[in-house]
Simulated scan of single mutants.
Amino acid sequence: MTWTTRPRSDHATLSAITAGQGATVVFIHGVGLRAEAWGAQLDALSPHYRVVAVDMPGHGGSALPAGELNLVDYTDAIATGIDGPVMVVGHSMGAMIALDMAIRYPEKVRGVVALNAIFRRRPDAAEAVQARAASLDGVSMADPHGTLERWFGTDASPERDACHGWLTDVNPAGYKAAYTIFAHQDGPDADDLTDLTCPALFMTGADEPNSTPAMSQAMAALAPKGRAEIIEGAAHMMPMTHAADVNAALLDFAKEIWP
């Protein structure tokens, strides 16, 4: 598919792509991306549900608020625009936000899906991601080559090209704010996961070196209604590179929470 820019509507103070009718599925992208990263999922789910893909603060069409931000600020900005129980789906940092929303706003979340979510990074991995965050100046964007190689390897693809465009176009201050939060988070609190009341699906790629299968399996084991699914041959950008597998899992999960 092509990853072209789509029309936006308002989601509280944020910008969002909205389509379809019925029960609502909210999508939250990762650092440096934008709502269009969910293009394949929007196309697959909008014939059956109302889909809302938000631009995180400082990304896409969403402004970056003044002052120092924390993870809860991102969650609250999205939750403010949600009226009733939704299925919330997040990828990477978006998965952190989705889980935080399910934990702190249980009345607004009927089910949560965390794609490529981190949980208890290895010390060397934590040091590396925090060093990358510290190198950002918030004024100019660094060459995205290293990020793209971590996500896609060295092979050229339309998905890689789309991410290159988003990473070079993102607000540098918005990227720094989000990446700094992402780098210093270590996943949800274990006690919060054990208290999670809604169904929870944790998915990642078998070839994912950072948001590893073991992390998803550990979180799923803690959540009372949790389960893990690992996609063979996939890595970090599996919503784009393995869209058919991700879409099938999301549709099955939606049918479970809305029989």
Rank of each mutant, 00 (worst) to 15 (best):
residue 1 M to S: 13
residue 6 R to E: 14
residue 9 S to A: 15
residue 11 H to L: 01
residue 12 A to P: 09
residue 15 S to F: 00
residue 23 A to R: 15
residue 24 T to Q: 15
residue 28 I to Y: 08
residue 28 I to R: 07
residue 30 G to Q: 04
residue 35 A to M: 01
residue 46 S to N: 14
residue 47 P to E: 14
residue 52 V to Q: 13
residue 58 G to D: 06
residue 60 G to V: 02
residue 61 G to I: 00
residue 62 S to I: 02
residue 63 A to W: 04
residue 64 L to H: 05
residue 69 L to R: 14
residue 69 L to E: 09
residue 72 V to Y: 12
residue 74 Y to T: 00
residue 76 D to K: 12
residue 77 A to T: 10
residue 79 A to C: 14
residue 79 A to K: 11
residue 80 T to P: 01
residue 83 D to G: 11
residue 86 V to G: 12
residue 86 V to Y: 12
residue 87 M to H: 08
residue 92 S to E: 08
residue 92 S to C: 10
residue 99 L to V: 14
residue 99 L to Y: 00
residue 103 I to H: 13
residue 106 P to M: 10
residue 107 E to A: 15
residue 109 V to L: 09
residue 109 V to D: 10
residue 110 R to K: 14
residue 112 V to T: 11
residue 112 V to G: 03
residue 113 V to S: 05
residue 114 A to L: 03
residue 114 A to Y: 02
residue 115 L to I: 15
residue 117 A to L: 14
residue 118 I to K: 11
residue 118 I to A: 12
residue 121 R to F: 08
residue 123 P to W: 06
residue 123 P to C: 10
residue 125 A to P: 02
residue 129 V to F: 06
residue 129 V to G: 00
residue 131 A to S: 14
residue 131 A to K: 11
residue 131 A to L: 05
residue 136 L to E: 08
residue 137 D to K: 08
residue 138 G to V: 07
residue 138 G to I: 02
residue 138 G to E: 08
residue 146 G to F: 03
residue 151 W to V: 03
residue 152 F to V: 05
residue 152 F to A: 08
residue 154 T to G: 10
residue 155 D to I: 13
residue 155 D to F: 08
residue 158 P to M: 11
residue 161 D to G: 06
residue 163 C to M: 15
residue 168 T to D: 01
residue 171 N to L: 10
residue 172 P to S: 12
residue 173 A to F: 05
residue 174 G to L: 05
residue 177 A to I: 00
residue 179 Y to C: 00
residue 180 T to F: 11
residue 181 I to L: 11
residue 181 I to C: 09
residue 182 F to W: 11
residue 182 F to A: 11
residue 183 A to V: 01
residue 185 Q to K: 00
residue 186 D to Y: 01
residue 187 G to N: 09
residue 187 G to K: 11
residue 187 G to W: 01
residue 187 G to V: 07
residue 193 L to G: 09
residue 193 L to V: 08
residue 196 L to E: 05
residue 196 L to C: 00
residue 198 C to S: 12
residue 200 A to W: 09
residue 203 M to F: 06
residue 209 P to Y: 04
residue 210 N to H: 08
residue 210 N to L: 05
residue 213 P to E: 02
residue 216 S to T: 03
residue 217 Q to S: 07
residue 219 M to I: 01
residue 222 L to N: 06
residue 223 A to Y: 10
residue 227 R to L: 07
residue 227 R to I: 00
residue 228 A to V: 05
residue 228 A to F: 02
residue 232 E to I: 07
residue 233 G to L: 06
residue 235 A to F: 02
residue 236 H to R: 03
residue 236 H to D: 08
residue 237 M to E: 07
residue 238 M to F: 14
residue 239 P to R: 03
residue 240 M to A: 13
residue 243 A to V: 01
residue 244 A to K: 14
residue 245 D to H: 15
residue 251 L to F: 04
residue 252 D to H: 05
residue 252 D to G: 10
residue 256 E to N: 09
residue 258 W to C: 11
residue 259 P to G: 13
